[in-house]
């Protein structure tokens, strides 16, 4: 492979994230303290998810323009790895909030109630549900070309409707989650300059890792399809 520079970049950026993210100084805010370091990982997951879904939609558009089944495979794999990163985003978020939001004096179920009503969590759940629905739609159609075409159409439509769900609506409702007025963690007021030098490389690193995983899955799938065609 001649185009492996971005894989090396990905490894380097993630190594940097793990070392600098855990060693460099961070501002100590009440209630957050050292848990703020999770920002490099938690928000990174969502950034990677958005990147992967966007690439999936681009491939869906390319499929509709060219009718080349290769793009359909790409689109599908990017969306499924996107779902994986979304789930990981939930997992890191759950660990984070168990240290910051959950009140140790209340029983766990009481804090769970208030957390389950978070608009940002619902928004993210909608995003994941849309892509799970996309996979169900794919599996319900037998014919190969029709499957690719219909699911590409749904992919584009769903992506366009996704913006209001995760970027606009949560801002209209009251929420505990930070970042009420802008994109969380991208706003210049939210993040101190010391953190910014770790944050941006971390986000790019995670997105590249997602793309890397997906390219491997795509190659595997192309091989499988070749076997089927022979």
């Amino acid at each position: 492979m001649h185009k492996s520079w971005w894989k090396i970049l990905c490894v380097a950026l993630l190594m940097y994230t793990f070392t600098a993210g855990l060693l460099l100084d961070v501002p100590h805010l009440p209630a957050l303290q050292e848990t703020i370091r999770n920002l490099y990982f938690h928000v990174g997951m969502w950034m990677a998810m958005m990147t992967l879904f966007t690439i999936s939609v681009i491939h869906a558009i390319r499929y509709l323009r060219t009718n080349n089944l290769k793009y359909d495979i790409n689109s599908r794999q990017y969306s499924s790895v996107g779902i994986l990163f979304g789930t990981l985003g939930y997992a890191t978020g759950a660990i984070w909030m168990s240290y910051t939001w959950a009140d140790p004096n209340n029983p766990a179920s009481a804090s769970f109630n208030s957390i389950a009503r978070e608009p940002k969590l619902i928004g993210a759940a909608i995003a994941l549900l849309i892509y799970l629905a996309y996979h169900i739609l794919r599996d319900s159609i037998q014919d190969l070309d029709k499957k690719a075409r219909v699911s590409a159409v749904y992919n584009i439509f769903a992506y366009a409707m996704l913006f209001p769900s995760i970027w606009i609506v949560p801002r209209l409702l009251p929420s505990l989650h930070p970042g009420q007025e802008g994109n969380p963690a991208l706003n210049f007021k939210d993040v101190s300059p010391e953190m910014r030098i770790v944050e941006l490389p971390a986000f790019i690193g995670w997105a590249l890792l997602g793309i890397w995983i997906t390219t491997l899955k795509i190659r595997l799938n192309l091989l499988k399809e070749k076997k089927l065609l022979q």
């Binding site: 629905a133 169900i136 739609l137 319900s140 159609i141 219909v150 409707m161």
Partner: peptide
């Protein structure tokens, strides 16, 4: 879209609800 996938009403609810919630 749902008319293309032959399972109709059920698939429509699955596709539609997440999109319409916002």
């Amino acid at each position: 879209i749902a008319a293309k996938a032959r399972q109709n009403a059920a698939i429509m609810a699955i596709l539609g609800f997440p999109i319409i919630i916002p």
